[in-house]
Design a protein around this nucleic acid. Sequence first.
RNA 1: GUGGCCAUAGCUCAAUGGUAGAGCCCCAGAUUGUGGUUCUGGCUGUUGCGGGUUCGAGUCCCGUUGGCCACCCCA
Length: 415
Amino acid sequence: MMQPLPGFRDFLPPSCAARNALFACWRETCRRYGFVEWDGPILEPTELFQKKSGPEIVAQLFNFTDKGGREVTLRPELTPTLARVVATHEREFRKPFKWFSIAQCFRYEKQQRGRLREHFQLNCDILGDASPAAEAELIALAIDLLRAFRFTEKEVVVRLSDREFWTDLLRAHSVPEERWSDLLSVIDKSEREPRDKTAAQLGSVAGPVLEVLDGGGRSEKLEQLVDALRLRGLADFVKIDLSIVRGLAYYTGVVFEVFDRSGTFRAIAGGGRYDNLIGQLSDGAVGLPAVGFAMGDVVLGEMIAAVPAARERMTKLVLNAQALDLYLVIAKEERRPDAVRQLQSLREAGWRVDYPLTPTKVGKQFQIAEAFGAKATLLYGDEWPSVKMKTLATREELLLPNEDLFTHIQRTWSH
RNA sequence: GUGGCCAUAGCUCAAUGGUAGAGCCCCAGAUUGUGGUUCUGGCUGUUGCGGGUUCGAGUCCCGUUGGCCACCCCA
């Protein structure tokens, strides 16, 4: 049997409905924050990603040569595309931009739990504002996205850090700039490595760095950020944690990652400030400060499944998405034309209505109505021109003359 | 890319080296106009694939593909 390629998913109706519900929740929350949606191409020149991330990342790219001999890559993330778009069109929009996108992204890697070769990523970015208020606004959005799925500060935490804190420290200890990215990566891994190994890799700066990692560092910038979130009542969701560095080279300031408190899953979301990337990608033509984050559908989906309140809400949304308003039961085949005529009017009125395409036993039709989640059935039989409406939840039946049908339905469930 | 564990019906799983099964799902019925429960019947397998050992392999061995986990990396 043909299967999807490794790391790629089929979305059958239930999981497709869940995906749509997830997207709808993302969109609604972003719009509440005044973010507008954009999108870019799924396929980009490989060069776009090399320029930003260096050659080691190319090993993980889903790339190939197209029929025109171009080196192309299925986008692994959206930020480089965003930088290109913004560098080209920045004069057309008022600053700051608050943009979001729901993008399918790809990587060529062995799949694991929470990590496929394809996933959907919500990207939110604020461009053209270098103030700390932009970080606060963006992180508040990240938190509210989680709250929209019924997660509380008991389940999730945003760990806040600052790359500038570390680069200042390294500069103060006269560490040459070309060693910074190696050292930052050691700091990033320190949580998962034995202390002495970390110390050895840090070399001359081991002392001061470990002191900070053991809780000795203070960042006024991050404390002010927490205060700004406290104003919004969101401080319980965040924790200053300087061990967060993030892997990508382009971050220049505040960085953050969202985790589940139980530590079961990988990071749910992550982001930070990247003030130089747009300048870099536009060869200096356009400079715009920027801060953004991404949140993937895979880990978030696992998290929703693991938290009862979130799972129940998602289940409800999925059922609601596929539920019918009405199912037409054709008890007498000679009434089928009457049923089909009303079917059309009911659908035109905006109701979700289904009916049996071929002659079917009445009992079976009620089973189908039930299975499709119909609120009520309309029965077409000897009563015509009246129709018997049955509310499935209460088993209540009501004989409705033809001319009362629409007003009755309208009154019972106004849209 | 490296290593470890796993692979049986659509799904969840049984089956000392000796004729491949159960539950769920799905489909059809239970005197022909009323659903969630119940009962009966039916459907489905080259036991992931390819070799090998054996009188005989779902079971043992090798390879391969896929899945899970760890590493690498993290968007």
